[in-house]
Design a protein around this nucleic acid. Structure first.
Lengths: 396, 396
DNA sequence: CCGACTTTTTCCACTCACAGGACAAAGAAC
DNA sequence: GTTCTTTGTCCTGTGAGTGGAAAAAGTCGG
């Protein structure tokens, strides 16, 4: 099937496409209630969208007491690809134009193998999804990478944990391979977009998403839009100093938040505790698996292991301290905690909340929810699909 | 004279007014180069602006090789009042519609005397400026207060250093007294607006202004617009923890930045040093004045006093540490240091720069200027005038 | 001093988008 | 079957805006 290449011709059409994306099939009358256009103007724009093929008729809706309305919807064959490259695994998902996930694959992978190897894997995962009949091709793809991105060009810049990716033309290359438009962003920004689109942040205009995975990053939404900063490195909070003269960090400084708490740091601390005999639970797991991960600590904590709980609490305190500073500065309407360590759950959340509510001023914390993300591993890929759909559903 | 009450009728007129404000008198042809309108459309909108009285003809411009153009300019009798209420003094200034300062008064005052007393003083200062022939009345006023403001209503909320101001209808009251529209904002936000309009930040879209006065605050500009946060307390960085288990702060916590460095903290530390005999220079001044202020420390430092220099350096280090965190998070294109302690000058700036460049990642600091504000005490009042003019030069 | 060339501004006719009413279509309620 | 409600289409008048042409007001060189 030939892929759609049309784009909305003006802001009205863009608005209509986004309404159809976020609200599903709709009649002209319903659309008319949500945009400020006369019925005739609306009809003209809808007709033009039908001509482009982006939108199709979708049968009759139930009557609301009078003539039944003709629904329209985004073309059911439209497909977006969402890719979320983490430090140690990749998520690839296919969505329809309404950004509903039709298929989702996760595979372990080491981002340090470099862009060529990772791309090969991503493309084969995408091919697998396509082969399973979910898509005949892709109309657009969004991709998140674990590091700063020069957004307009879609190129990673100076990514600390991704040697070999610096300057690699991710957008260009993927667009070539997939034959569709591609947008690239930081993985945390996409997570924020995901939670905004389909998660806990649907109604908030200014909020933060703190992702605690292998590293720590923060997505910033200002006025409903992703804020990326001057060079695309906004939200890089992993290297904020959390402990004066603390542990040495890979970045060359000491006491960085990431050096004291993150998936990697937690695993290291747990192994140390196990070896020193401070936790039988962790020692058992270490022997069984030959190594420990954040998931092991989560399991030990769930089993009531005091040492594991302490590790989580201390990490939560450190993270909470940093977040408290960010809350004072940014005064968000919501803070979302997400990422691989969400398994640590409410112990972590409670520690973070305690610090933030204690350290920030009441005016900033008074009505500030601090919650776990509700999309889990799908936040990134939904955000990726959202990113490319925002791009394609904007005037060219 | 009757005051102007007209407002632009549409976005085009608003754009034209702002061009005339920022660029001074202009011909239709020059305006045409800066807006995307046909000559005829432009002529129509200009004619309408002339009708409203906001804009007047301003004679002929020099020829550029052909017919001389008829200049137009904002009405020369338009006057804005800029008010900057600090913790210990008030600045009041009159500007024309191009936001040039025509008269400026500064008087000492204690904000804790409460809104009624302060307003009386502000109004008498405004009357003095008016009596000196600078203005026959005001077309709008902007006012900055040293604390968080619920911006849409123009009401201070929970201001720590302004007891008695909480919930006081500043906007409403001042508007009543002056008989013109009024906008209220945090003093630091206005300082940022001032530096953006006429200072060091003219070309930057995303930047921070750190004001070190009696307290410490931070103005945040995102995409050229002031960011105020969910409850108007964004930028309240004085109570970020700078020293774990540090000095007790008025807010109830320990180790807040403001407790360790600010005009007030610096004066206290200097007095302590003088009493302990650690600095002859400071001791002399203490005896002469019966007390010390940040200005005394600045003078002592200028005279080469080692203790004073140490105090400044240590404060700069603390401040730099906090700013380093903000830079990592926000990735600004510029950081401006301003406020009463600007007298501490390059000693302070050097200490801050050292910390930021050492602690933040190269991608964020690589091309990040950290500079002193260039408007000094006029930044606030210019920002105040800018605030109200932005409001009045927007479609109603 | 005069004509050629520039630049600015005004004038005008033509186009096009849009609003809003009238009307047709389709179904619900009775 | 009649009446009422809702939805969708058609059509015409209005008004905004574009772009060309011409007028106005200069400069500059001979």
């Amino acid at each position: 099937m030939r892929r759609m290449t049309a784009r909305p011709a003006n802001a009205h059409q863009a608005k209509l496409l986004k309404l159809l994306r976020d609200g599903g099939p709709n009649s002209r009358a319903q659309l008319g209630d949500q945009v400020d256009l006369s019925r005739s103007k609306l009809a003209v724009e809808v007709d033009r969208l039908l001509e482009t093929g982006l939108v199709v008729a979708d049968g009759l809706a139930a009557s609301r007491g009078g003539r039944r309305s003709h629904n329209i919807r985004l073309h059911p064959h439209l497909r977006f690809l969402g890719v979320d490259i983490g430090a140690t695994s990749v998520d690839v998902a296919v969505t329809n134009a309404e950004l509903e996930i039709l298929g989702h694959i996760n595979q372990p992978m080491d981002v340090r193998e470099g862009p060529v190897a990772v791309f090969e894997q991503v493309l084969s995962m995408a091919a697998k999804l396509r082969a399973s009949g979910l898509a005949e091709g892709f109309d657009g793809a969004g991709i998140g990478v674990p590091g700063p991105v020069r957004f307009p060009e879609g190129v990673p810049v100076a990514p600390p944990i991704m040697p070999g990716w610096d300057g690699f033309p991710v957008r260009e290359a993927l667009s070539q391979e997939l034959g569709c438009p591609v947008m690239v962003d930081n993985d945390v920004n996409l997570m924020a977009l995901g939670e905004q689109h389909a998660g806990v942040a649907r109604t908030v205009q200014d909020f933060l998403v703190v992702k605690i995975g292998t590293g720590i990053g923060c997505g910033i939404i200002v006025g409903g839009q992703v804020y990326r900063g001057t060079t695309g490195s906004a939200g890089d909070i992993g290297h904020i100093q959390a402990v004066p003269d603390g542990r040495p960090c890979a970045c060359g400084n000491r006491g960085c938040l990431e050096a004291h708490f993150s998936g990697a740091a937690l695993a290291r601390d747990a192994e140390e505790a196990a070896q020193q005999g401070r936790s039988a639970e962790l020692a058992t797991r270490l022997e069984t698996n030959g190594g420990l991960s954040a998931a092991d600590v989560a399991a030990a904590a769930a089993a009531g292991d005091a040492t594991a709980l302490d590790l989580i609490r201390e990490g939560g305190n450190r993270t909470g301290q940093v977040i408290a500073g960010l809350v004072s500065f940014f005064n968000p309407g919501l803070v979302v905690i997400g990422g691989g360590v969400t398994g640590l759950g409410h112990t972590l959340l409670a520690a973070i909340r305690t610090q933030v509510y204690r350290q920030s001023l009441p005016l900033a914390t008074g009505n500030l929810p601090i919650v776990l993300g509700e999309l889990g591993p799908t936040a990134g890929v939904i955000g990726a699909a959202r990113l490319i759909s925002d791009h394609l559903f904007s005037p060219a």
